[in-house]
């Protein structure tokens, strides 16, 4: 007999690229919130762990006509044919049916990194090193999030610990559904420009659903068919054209993300 069925939601995010200044607050807030340790000495942008990462993209033109945009990329929380989930050999990745959040279970992960090869957004990060904080700094770890061990993959999970907290708060007041104000991921809270909006995409009253349905909204690599739950906004056409490669662009050499 099943007695409790959690109210279902489909959490999603909308990031306004016209407001992002590339300051990196989201990256840092995410790392603080999720107990991501500081990088080791010889860490690089290819071996580090940044669940939320800001890329600089441009329109492919050269000086002085270049236009650039800052693009924060984290796990896009694919809703359909979730590439990472289907490839994991031991179910260490799952899509939570109640929230739509793509969860990564580090305790289950064996570190084969197949999911990383599968993810077109490069949103998954491998722990190449043991997690290590400077002496004493463990005291400044978030008690709500467990640190991960070396040799496993991790990624953004829309700050699941904050979802936990929101559920506890709801339970303590006898509510069945959580208060949307109680569940806000760290990057959303941290963005000084208020460029990120978070909420239930299935809730037609939510701000995030309205934004995602707007003319400025687009998603990256939408043609692959993974149905990400992270949307981006821009009123600039060339920025919206960054979404897919098929939108013909002349690439200049050595464009760095």
């Amino acid at each position: 007999m099943r007695t409790v069925t959690t109210a279902r939601s489909r959490y999603g995010m909308v990031i306004d690229l016209d407001r992002c200044t590339g300051c990196g607050s989201c990256t840092v807030a995410c790392s603080v919130e999720n107990n991501i340790p500081p990088g080791t000495e010889n860490v690089t942008e290819r071996t580090g762990i940044t669940w939320m990462r800001v890329y600089e993209a441009d329109d492919g033109k050269s000086f002085p006509d270049t236009h650039s945009v800052f693009v924060p990329i984290m796990c896009q929380q694919c809703g359909n044919e979730t590439p990472c989930m289907s490839v994991c050999p031991q179910n260490a990745v799952e899509v939570d049916p109640a929230t739509g959040i793509v969860g990564q279970i580090p305790e289950r992960c064996l570190g084969c990194r197949y999911c990383m090869a599968a993810c077109p957004y490069h949103a998954r990060y491998f722990n190449w090193w043991d997690p290590k904080w400077p002496a004493g700094m463990e005291a400044a770890m978030n008690p709500d999030v467990a640190p991960r061990m070396r040799g496993v993959v991790e990624k953004c999970n829309f700050c699941q610990s904050r979802l936990h907290t929101a559920r506890e708060r709801a339970a303590s007041t006898g509510r069945t559904a959580i208060d949307p104000a109680d569940y806000v991921p760290a990057c959303v809270e941290a963005c000084p420009q208020r460029a990120i909006t978070f909420g239930d995409l299935d809730d037609s009253d939510s701000f995030v659903a309205a934004l995602a349905a707007g003319d400025r909204a687009f998603r990256f690599l939408s043609r692959i068919g993974t149905e990400p739950k992270v949307w981006y906004l821009s009123s600039r056409e060339w920025v919206r054209n960054l979404s897919d490669r098929v939108v013909a662009r002349t690439r200049k050499e050595n464009v760095r993300g």
Partner: peptide, 26 residues
């Protein structure tokens, strides 16, 4: 050597994801 957590490699047999090609390979 290639996997990050060889001591847990047997999880594939215990919690197999039948949709994964890697499970089939293993």
């Amino acid at each position: 050597v290639d996997v990050g957590q060889p001591l847990r490699a047997w999880f594939t047999f215990w919690h197999p994801n039948t949709h994964s090609m890697l499970t089939e390979v293993t």
